[in-house]
Structures are given as C-alpha cells and as structure tokens.
C-alpha cells in the first residue's frame, strides 16, 4: 500500500537550483527514508520489505551480486522504474520527510532534485556547453549569464573545468571516457540536485579516471547526498560512509562502511565481501 505524506507546496519547476526539499542547517539522518518497500516487475518480486534511512550529505554504497535489487532500489528513488511497463510497489520512500509518491509531487521536479549518473556515460550528441545547459533550456531559461554561470559552476564541481574550458563548444563525444562520465556528473549537478544517484559510475573507466571520479565523489558529498551502486568493494570502502548489502532482493545488512568491511554482523555479508559467495 502506498502511503502519502502531508501535502507540501509543489516545487517550482521552472527554476533550476530550486530543490524539492528545503535546505537543512544540519544534515538529516533520514534524509531519504525507505519504509516497508516491496517492488515488482510484473509478477516477479524484485525487492522485499526494504527499510532503511540514508543520511544527508554522506555517501551510501549499495553492494551485492547482480540481480540482488540494488539498482532497482536506486531507480525507485527518482521513480525511474515507472518508465517500465507492469511495475508496481508497496510501501513508501520519503525524501526529507515527504513521500516521493505524493500526488502533488511532480516527477520531473523530483528527478531534477535527484540526479542520476549511469554506468555508461551518455552525453548528448551536442557541445559540452549544451550538454550542461540542456535541462535549463528545457525549463525555459535562456539568460546567457545564468547559463554561463551554470556551465562553469557545474564543470568546476565535476573537476572538469580546467580540462575543457577552452573548448566548450566542441562536441561532448570527443571527450575521453573519464571526461564524459564527469561531464554527465556536471550535467547532473547543473540542476543543484539534493541527491546524486550513481549506478556503477566507474565500471567502464580506467584506474586514473576512476580515481578522479572517486575524488569528485568525496568533494561532492559536502553539498550532495550520494548513493552509489558498485561491484567494486575497494571503491565502496574508499568512497562511502555507509554501506548496504543486498541479496536476492533483501537488505541483509546496512551499517557504517568500516564496520561492514572489517566486521560485518551477518554471515551472508561476510561471505559476499570475502568472496565466499558463488
């Protein structure tokens, strides 16, 4: 059953940088809260009774074998899964206390507030500049000052500015794999989202590009709440503050990253991270 929260004013869809939720002085421990969440692809249940709280301005890693449901849960946070036919859910997901399924919640505004970076970088076949300002233009913003400022801020935020500032009008498809992925991060943060979802963002990158993205994740967490799906244990240990282990659609264990990787509480977690799973 879908719960609904107290109605709150709808977000201003036209203004980038206006978040769905208000800025908090102190990070909130249950910034993103999942309660009794079940999810189905048609008849197949993919997630079972998930309950978890993701803290604000921290990095939370989702780990687990393929098919365990970690990406499915991630894609529920910005309601991406609703683009698939036949899906349904039970339970609720609250963003800063407000249900993302609230009837007054605009999905577009939600996705602006919860940016996503995918496994394979997917820049638009446009210039670097246009990639960044694409969503602003869609939102009807045409002020050159605002667009320029957003491009510089986003590219600096994604640690890409120095590498591309002299060729902003060049095609984004000419960038290296690592640069393309950071461009996608820049594009995601152009809207000043509150949450950044990253679905295996480094799986196609070489070690140097991976290190740059990981460094970036560390820098970005002062402003954004980050949830990252990764198959790379070392990446989870390096990047995240909290780690959740999923198995067969269930959340097996969720704790501080150091605890999970030095002394997990559940045998299944221990077996998975030590490679005794298979």
């Amino acid at each position: 059953m879908i719960k609904s929260m107290d109605p709150q004013p709808p977000p201003t869809a036209s203004a980038p940088g206006t978040n769905v939720t208000s800025e908090l002085a102190h990070p909130r421990a249950d910034f993103l809260k999942v309660t009794d969440f079940n999810f189905y692809y048609g008849k197949k249940q993919a997630l079972y009774q998930i309950n978890m709280e993701i803290p604000q301005r921290q990095v939370t890693a989702f780990i687990g074998p393929s098919g365990c449901g970690k990406s499915t849960l991630l894609r529920n946070f910005n309601r991406m899964n609703e683009l698939i036919d036949g899906v349904r859910h039970e339970g609720d997901i609250l963003l800063n206390g407000r249900s993302i399924y609230d009837k007054k919640m605009e999905v577009i505004a939600l996705r602006r507030s919860i940016g996503m970076v995918f496994q394979k970088s997917n820049p638009f076949p446009k210039s670097i500049y246009e990639n960044i300002v694409y969503s602003l233009r869609i939102a009807g913003i045409s002020s050159k000052n605002i667009l320029d400022e957003t491009v510089e801020r986003s590219l600096r935020g994604a640690a890409l500015w120095d590498e591309v500032k002299d060729r902003l009008q060049d095609s984004a498809l000419g960038l290296s794999g690592g640069q393309m992925q950071r461009l996608c991060i820049a594009r995601a943060i152009a809207n000043r989202p509150e949450i950044l979802l990253m679905d295996e963002p480094c799986s196609a990158l070489d070690p140097i590009a991976t290190a740059k993205v990981e460094d970036l994740i560390h820098d970005l967490k002062s402003q954004f709440t980050i949830v990252i799906v990764t198959h790379n244990m070392q990446q989870a240990t390096r990047c995240s503050d909290r780690t959740a282990f999923f198995y067969l659609g269930k959340l097996i264990e969720y704790d501080d990253t150091q605890k999970i990787f030095t002394n997990p509480g559940e045998k299944q977690t221990e077996d998975y991270i030590t490679g005794r799973f298979g």
Binding site: Y247, L248, E266, K267, Q268, F277
Partner: peptide, 18 residues
C-alpha cells in the same frame, strides 16, 4: 533487517586466495 539464511559455500571463490 532480513536475516533469512541462504546457503552460501564457505570456501573462497578464488582457490589461489584460499
């Protein structure tokens, strides 16, 4: 948190590590 037991082998996947 779910703690349903699902059988998993106790030997390492990488035999060289073991």
């Amino acid at each position: 948190m779910s703690t349903d037991t699902v059988a998993m082998p106790n030997t390492h996947i990488l035999s060289t590590f073991e």
